[in-house]
Amino acid sequence: MTTTPAIELTGLTKSYGDHAVLSGVDLSVAPGTVLALLGANGSGKTTTVKILSTLLRTDGGTATVHGHDVATAHGEVRASISLTGQFAAVDEVLTGRENLVLVAKLRHLDDAGGIADELLARFELADAAGRRVATWSGGMRRRLDIAMSLIGDPPVLFLDEPTTGLDPQSRIEVWATVRELVGQGTTVLLTTQYLDEAEHLADRIAILHEGRIIAEGTLAELQQLLPPAEVEYVEKQPTLEDVFLAIVGHDGSSEQEADR
């Protein structure tokens, strides 16, 4: 596996008017891994994803995705990535198979039908392929959304709060899908407000607070930032939630603005 980072940010800054959202973000994501980007509302998570996916220009600093500069190589970056937002971007009037065929044709790929059938089988959606997506469950729609994002085999996938609003079983289905993708070499940048999701999926975790990365490492490394608690004489390791709240504080004073 190459040692060149799949995603690299150096001194990234972004402001809206006189409000600084990013104040010098440094971050590196190794290929074929999951990095979970955690932060309260307004911390800059979505802004970071928008910059990396060329939807928003940075004010300063540099960012590369799959070796391409997001400021000067828009086309190369977009060819290397796919983005799945907080809500499934599927057409509910179409069937599952029609959604996939449509995206394959928009990407000018040969054998759109074959690509659709392969993805339906891969994501265990073949039995529902001919049904309108409006009849599908939330978990099935999210899996279809991720399947659509993989058409063209992008090496880097941005998942911006992918399980928002899903029931527990649907969340588990999405987690299994993400693990499979990473096992096949896809690099994933995951933003989430569910700390258990980061614990289950992430190889490394970064905490974004007031526009800066204030902690980054594996779950075990972050747990070392807090001493273990003793409950009835049994040593208890701090959870990721304990670490997150201890680092960013409990008062929520910096959460007044919604994440942009």
Rank of each mutant, 00 (worst) to 15 (best):
E197D: 15
I205T: 01
A220E: 08
E199I: 07
Y233I: 05
E216Q: 11
E230T: 13
A206I: 06
L201S: 11
E221W: 04
L226I: 02
L226Q: 05
H200F: 14
E232A: 12
A220S: 11
L225T: 15
D242Q: 13
T218N: 14
L219P: 00
H250S: 12
I205P: 00
A198E: 02
L240F: 03
Q224C: 11
I247T: 09
L222V: 07
T192Q: 00
R212V: 03
P227S: 15
I207R: 00
I207K: 03
A202L: 09
P228D: 10
Q193Y: 03
I205K: 02
Q223P: 03
E230R: 12
T218S: 15
A215F: 05
L195W: 10
P227D: 15
E210V: 02
D242T: 09
Q237R: 15
D242C: 06
G252A: 13
V234C: 11
L240Q: 05
G211N: 12
Q237F: 12
H200V: 14
L219Y: 02
E216T: 05
A202D: 02
E199C: 06
E235F: 09
D196P: 08
Y233C: 07
A229D: 06
I205Y: 03
P228F: 09
V234A: 12
H209L: 08
H200P: 02
G217C: 07
Q224P: 04
Q224L: 11
I213D: 00
L222T: 03
A229R: 13
D251M: 13
Q237H: 14
R204I: 01
H209C: 10
Q223A: 10
D242V: 15
E199N: 04
Q223C: 08
L226Y: 02
V248S: 00
G249Y: 07
P227E: 15
E210N: 08
Q193R: 05
I207T: 04
L195N: 05
G252Y: 09
I213P: 01
V234M: 04
G249E: 10
E199H: 01
P227Q: 15
Y233V: 07
Q224R: 14
V248Q: 00
L222A: 04
Y233W: 04
Y194P: 02
H200M: 12
Y194A: 05
D203K: 07
E232I: 03
I213S: 05
V243Q: 00
T218Q: 03
D242S: 12
E241P: 14
D203C: 09
E230K: 07
F244C: 01
Y233P: 00
V248E: 00
I205G: 04
K236D: 09
E221D: 10
P227V: 13
A198I: 10
G252I: 03
E210I: 02
